[in-house]
Amino acid sequence: MDVRRFDVFNGDADGICAQHQWRLAYPAESTLVTGVKRDVALLRRVDAAADAEVMVFDIAIDANAAALRAVLDAGAHVTWFDHHSARHAFAHPCLHLFWDDDPAVCTSLLVDRHLGGRYRAWAVAAAFGDNLAGPARMLAAGMGLSTTQADALADLGTVLNYNAYGECVDDLHFAPQALYRALHPYADPFAFIAASAEYRMLAEGYRDDCSRMSGLQPQWEWDYGAVYVLPDACWARRVSGVLANRVAAAESTCAFAVLTPCPDGAFVVSVRSGAPGTHPANVLCEAFPGGGGRRAAAGINLLPAADVERFVRAFSDYFAGCGDGSHAR
């Protein structure tokens, strides 16, 4: 009897590269379940029956706990790799959970550990895309990669991650499942970079969109961080994560939030913490409906316009202890 298989993964660099590593190691036909980066309640799309095999990469259990119980109750076997908040995790004989919320870890690095480094270059690209440049460069050096090669993987991870940001799939250059299918034939990411038309299109789109970021300024700013509000445009939605990662990398001890408008007037929020050990980003975001994530980077899927000032006050109060001053301008 054929086994029904489902591969459920976040549509960003970490989710795609984690899924890719796994299926390079364990080839099998499966139903792909993914979406834009903020589309994290993915397990509810899985119509699992008894003895189905469900692989999950880079989505939080906390956003899928009820759906996970339903899938397990149907008799499915679930293997889950993730690094987001997992307060609602639970034990089950058919659930195999590989979880670590260390700020220096992403899901692709967890898969890399499990596979013993078999496809490590893809994990390095994912770590770069997940704003973990330090761990990524350490791994690249350990592999004997040159600076030029590490930089190429950094560019790859960045554009894969960039592609996942949008209100809906129509905002993206490629649907995440299409992008995964485009890169999956390549065990070597350098071959994908050299040969793929999809990579060239993403790199060009990334350059064009980033060229529009130069004039962006914070709406609120303190010594310990800042809050940006982006214009209501497709390019702005695509670069929201890039902006958050860039400003966080430029001032690594500060906190930042990027608010991206939605068509209904609400906002998607991305938060980066400069002190994930003492001021985890996910804790701030979880105080708002639809909020969650991990220590260093988290977000709110839908912040009503009426709650923006409340969020800014909460952001300021929460991160004030990270800096030396509290004046806004």
Rank of each mutant, 00 (worst) to 15 (best):
S211M: 09
R45V: 07
A281S: 07
A248E: 04
H83R: 01
E167K: 03
F90I: 06
S211D: 14
V54G: 10
G274I: 01
V56W: 01
P304C: 13
E309P: 02
L160V: 12
L68E: 02
D12Y: 05
V3F: 10
F192N: 11
R23F: 08
D102I: 05
A182N: 13
T31A: 13
A195C: 15
D7M: 10
D188F: 11
C322I: 06
G321H: 07
W222F: 05
N301S: 14
A127N: 01
A248K: 02
A133G: 08
D324H: 14
V159S: 01
L179A: 13
R294F: 04
A52S: 15
S214L: 15
A178S: 15
A328Y: 06
L153T: 03
R118P: 01
D62G: 10
R329M: 14
A244Y: 02
A133M: 03
F311Q: 05
M1I: 10
G299E: 00
H20V: 06
R44H: 09
A320H: 04
C285K: 03
A236T: 07
Y162L: 06
R87S: 13
W122S: 07
A154Y: 04
H83E: 09
A203Y: 05
H92N: 11
I59W: 00
A191N: 15
D188H: 13
T31P: 09
L230Y: 05
I16Y: 02
Q177R: 15
D171N: 12
V239P: 00
D73M: 08
L68S: 08
S196D: 15
D307P: 10
R120P: 08
A133S: 09
N161L: 00
Y119M: 02
W22Y: 13
F9L: 06
A255C: 08
D324M: 13
A91L: 11
H96W: 14
R87C: 12
R118A: 08
A104G: 14
V54M: 09
D100N: 14
C254V: 00
S252V: 04
P93W: 07
R5A: 14
C17I: 07
R329Y: 13
R272Y: 00
V312A: 07
C262K: 07
G116I: 09
D39R: 05
R120Q: 12
A255D: 02
A298G: 04
P135T: 01
Y318N: 03
F192H: 12
R87T: 13
C234H: 05
A52H: 07
A126G: 03
S316F: 00
G157K: 01
L42N: 00
P261N: 04
L243G: 00
L230R: 05
A164G: 10
D14V: 07
